[in-house]
Design a protein around this nucleic acid. Sequence first.
DNA 1: CACGCTCCATTGGTCATACCGTTAGCCGAT
DNA 2: ATCGGCTAACGGTATGACCAATGGAGCGTG
Lengths: 243, 243
Amino acid sequence: MDAEPVSDHGELFSPVSVGRISQVIIEQVRLLIRQGKLKPGDRLPSERALCGRFGVSRVTVREALRVLEATGLVEIRVGARGGAIVAEPSSDSVGEGIADLLTLSALSASEVTETRMVIEVSLIPLVVARAGADDLAELTEICRAQEAALAENRHHSTELSAAFHTRLAGCSHNAAVAMLVQSFHGPLLASLDAAAATAPEMGRRGIEEHLQLVEAIAAKDADLAAEIMRAHLARTAGRLAEA
Amino acid sequence: MDAEPVSDHGELFSPVSVGRISQVIIEQVRLLIRQGKLKPGDRLPSERALCGRFGVSRVTVREALRVLEATGLVEIRVGARGGAIVAEPSSDSVGEGIADLLTLSALSASEVTETRMVIEVSLIPLVVARAGADDLAELTEICRAQEAALAENRHHSTELSAAFHTRLAGCSHNAAVAMLVQSFHGPLLASLDAAAATAPEMGRRGIEEHLQLVEAIAAKDADLAAEIMRAHLARTAGRLAEA
DNA sequence: CACGCTCCATTGGTCATACCGTTAGCCGAT
DNA sequence: ATCGGCTAACGGTATGACCAATGGAGCGTG
């Protein structure tokens, strides 16, 4: 008899049915969305309909939808005419993920701040080149709101500060850059709160820097604006380091 | 009979059981992990045990675990001694989320390239400051592999080129930056393939620029390295613009 | 005719049970 | 001592049922 008749045949045999069925469904839907065959707002068939379509049980379909929902790809509504709706691309779920990584100390606050400096400082040239009058007006508006909040509550709103930075990224008129910065919105809030706890009186200075930034951008002075942004972020980083 | 005896009592009554049951379980586990009461490697009770613990059905527990798995918080293994294991914090799932966001958002190739220039050029100072001998060795190794691939197939491997840029970001020794660049891997490949189609003979020049980059980093010349990177990316951007 | 109310079909949320495939660890045979 | 099979634990899937929420159709009333 031949020795080892079924082993060492290399590529002859390949594993059959790898992974979960729900995973196959997930990737199938994902592909459809990426190919644009499913666009935001489109309604997927009902769970029961999908069961028949894929030839699987409802449990399996539901697990796939759960993952797609957690990934932020679809939104699920209950009731008649409910079901899975392809969601508008949003950076929210990504932001939560980064926040998780922060709290799990897989990312340090300094790493996140450093990353912000990398991105936000070097996107300044884009902003200077492309910011329109309406962009500047909105930035100024946010600064005004910050001043109002400061006058009223005696401490500056970290929410508004984060909004300023997010809106500033939007002034680059580059959706990819804007989304990246927006992803840091949530984690950014946490850092700002920590920094505010360290030095609550710094709110005013932060607002002044925001205003100077807007002025520099309006004056098309990219170098000055970048320098202001660098100093602004470095100051926040410094306060975080103290804590 | 009293008219409307139970309405208009304002805050007296609050909705009971908001949202999904699985969501409650998710947040409970999430909290335990954030508080450190569950550490990476710890094994959660089996699904059936969790059913009894929470007083819910297995389906509900499974949906919670699915979401936690999709979020990258736990890893699920089958078989005896299997179950949900608290995962080592990793930026992979977040990176995938960013990649999804980028591919789904109808970004133009120019936006992606521009964003790469923003990030990859300005992370150069970090790399110059922190790259170690092993980092440089690995970068050189990738370049060698590129040359080998070029000699063999007569056209350069876009996969290796993307790997070079990803590894370069890793040299910043900042996990957040590395995660961002890595999430551009997929879209980056698409751009590179498009660029390669336009000018297939440019592979050699790209490799040379990679090597010059490594040299400049080894020489701690941040300005030169940044300039090389800028030119390198700009060239790719230019070829994309032609297409 | 217009407005509002009620009823109902649709659809997701949850449960209970059963069976299968996979896996690790144990135990016996060689 | 090693290899092989056995077994219990555990996740993966299927089935069928019922509940809760929701939107729209149909009916009734002014």
